[in-house]
């Protein structure tokens, strides 16, 4: 099988494609594949020419830390939970996330995610839940908050979003979800958060909901939107 990787040696150098041959089992993930290319032997391209090892980032290797977000066969995904068997065709293409500056090969600088949350002071501060909900509704609400708090800040929702460009004004689905978590956990902040949500998400989102398709944690962004739009 051919593996085509978009490489870039440094933040300022030009990107270029490099093709590798790999013979790996279908139950191997793309993370496993990258490891295989890098370390099963000296690394060479498809013509047998020696090259440098491919830069990428990992930590948990099981889909809960968001490190290995990249674009695989055109779809933003986590390398550690995308399996070779599920990729169509005889060639796999791997690119870094395109909406974030590349640091090296598949490593990107996603610090804008944190900068935006910090800039707008998105934090709970103190747990002050609402009193209006109880019973089944409260339970559902609790589940929703739990799901949002699982957001791994991988950036896949931003990569796929037709409205997200570079995080200057529109901050994307993960921002909307964090807004909801803060508003739900500290009701004193509802009004303030609603304004930030409108400014950086609600007013621009065209509701393609592609963010939900690629979210590794399956966060129901649409539920956060419905609730924040209502408030």
């Amino acid at each position: 099988m051919k593996v085509k990787v978009l490489r870039q040696q440094s933040p300022v150098s030009e990107p270029y494609w490099e093709v590798f041959d790999a013979d790996v089992p279908g139950d191997m993930s793309v993370a496993g594949l990258l490891d295989h290319l890098n370390y099963h032997d000296d690394i060479v391209d498809e013509n047998g020419k020696p090259t440098t090892r491919i830069g990428w980032e990992c930590s948990c290797l099981q889909g809960i830390c968001g490190s290995c977000a990249m674009v695989i066969n055109g779809i933003p995904a986590l390398a550690c939970e995308t399996f070779v068997r599920d990729l169509k065709g005889s060639e796999i293409t791997i690119q870094p996330l395109q909406k974030f500056p590349v640091i090296h090969d598949l490593l990107t600088d996603r610090s804008v995610i944190y900068k935006n949350l910090e800039k707008e002071n998105i934090f709970i501060g103190e747990y002050k839940p609402g009193s209006e909900e109880n019973g089944k509704k409260a339970q559902k609400e609790h589940v929703h908050q739990y799901e949002i708090a699982k957001c791994i800040k991988c950036g896949l929702c931003l990569e796929v979003c037709p409205n997200y460009v570079n995080g200057q004004n529109f901050f994307g689905a993960m921002f909307a979800n964090d807004c909801y978590l803060v508003a739900a956990r500290n009701t004193d902040k509802r009004r303030e958060i609603k304004e930030l949500y409108d400014e950086h998400f609600g007013s621009t989102c065209s509701k393609s909901l592609s963010c939900m398709d690629v979210c590794p944690m399956k966060i129901p962004t649409i539920a956060s939107m419905a609730k924040l739009n209502r408030r």
């Binding site: 980032e57 930590s59 809960i64 830390c65």
Partner: peptide, 11 residues
């Protein structure tokens, strides 16, 4: 080196 979301603690 990386944000807290990437630390082992999340596991």
């Amino acid at each position: 080196p990386f944000p807290s979301e990437r630390s082992q603690s999340v596991m």
